[in-house]
């Protein structure tokens, strides 16, 4: 068990290192003068030189990387050229809306997708199964911004059930928070629900065909017990794995959804930074999102220890 833990943790180190090196090199390997790229099209020669000095671009590459990673490890991502403030504090201000959106979406997804996928698998080839599969293909195909605008048009503009856009912190009360969260979280969760429902269906279907399910039925267990205690329990590992892998979709979706619903989160920050070519900010958010993604998946891998007793050496 400790071995598995140590190996899993150790395996993420090269991944994180790769991401860091990649993000660091992004700028350096771009054709053209990196300082000029960072400074933007209207910068003066002095400004470019100042940036060159600030980024240490004249130093040897390895030294630049050393300096850069030392700063990053201290939480210092430099100063945003566009927002004129430290990137770290910028991220600090923007993290809450994004986290709220992601958690609400995750909640909706799991609550909807797992039962749906399980039922579809149990009633294989029935109308319910076809409906779930149809929804899953459709849900996977409708881009989140198309869906977002559709929801806004129907529920905010026409029916006026919810505010059109914006964000309210949960500290301002549950209803203001939820009222503004329902539409973006629903839009964002559709593709995720499609993904999880599909993998749940496939995994449960596979387990239902396994010998030990026949054994469970042969013991005279009620179908409910067979499906939940035996089939779903065994399908847990692939489902949880895809929930983790699907976070990449969620992160991509957050960037778009926050733009559509005008939510002042990290996604919006990313887009604004990209549009303004605000290099330090771009670096920081990519690093942050990627590290979060890798670490969450690491934690998910560790739940295998609980879910599957076979993983243990």
């Amino acid at each position: 068990m400790l071995g598995f833990l140590a190996r899993r943790v150790a395996a993420t180190v090269p991944v994180l290192l790769f991401v860091a090196v990649f993000v660091f090199l992004l700028l350096r390997l771009t054709p053209g003068d990196p300082a000029a790229i960072v400074a933007g099209d209207n910068a003066s020669t002095e400004q470019i030189e100042e940036i060159r000095a600030q980024l240490g671009l004249d130093e040897p590459l390895l030294e630049q990387f050393g300096l850069w990673s030392a700063k990053v490890l201290r939480g210092d991502f430099g100063e945003s050229f566009f927002f004129k403030q430290p990137v770290a504090s910028l991220i600090g201000q923007r993290i809450e809306p994004t986290l709220s959106l992601a958690l609400v979406t995750l909640f909706i997804t799991v609550v909807v997708a797992v039962p749906l996928g399980t039922l579809a698998a149990y009633y294989h080839r029935s109308w319910l199964d076809r409906l779930v599969m149809g929804f899953s293909v459709a849900g996977f195909s409708v881009p989140v911004f198309v869906l977002g605008y559709l929801l806004i048009y129907v529920f905010a503009v026409e029916l006026r059930w919810f505010p059109v856009q914006g964000f309210a912190s949960i500290r301002e009360g549950l209803w203001p928070f939820l009222e503004r969260m329902v539409l973006p979280a629903s839009a964002l969760s559709v593709i995720y629900v499609a993904l999880i429902a599909r993998i749940t269906r496939a995994s449960v279907l596979e387990v239902l065909g396994e010998d030990h399910v026949r054994t469970a039925r042969g013991k005279g267990l009620p179908e409910r017990t067979v499906v939940i205690n035996h089939a779903l329990r065994n399908a847990a590992v692939p489902i949880v794995t895809v929930i983790g892998v699907g976070l990449a979709l969620l992160i991509g979706g957050v960037v778009v959804t926050e733009s559509v619903f005008n939510i002042p989160g990290l996604g919006r920050l990313t887009v604004d930074a990209v549009l303004a070519r605000d290099y330090p900010t771009i670096q920081a958010v990519i690093l942050l999102f990627s590290f979060a993604y890798v670490l969450i998946n690491l934690m998910i891998d560790l739940t295998y220890l609980v879910l599957d007793p076979r993983i243990r050496y």
Partner: peptide, 10 residues
């Protein structure tokens, strides 16, 4: 096949 006939996670 007793390996597959028993539930591996219980």
């Amino acid at each position: 096949e007793p390996m597959t006939a028993l539930n591996p996670v219980l």
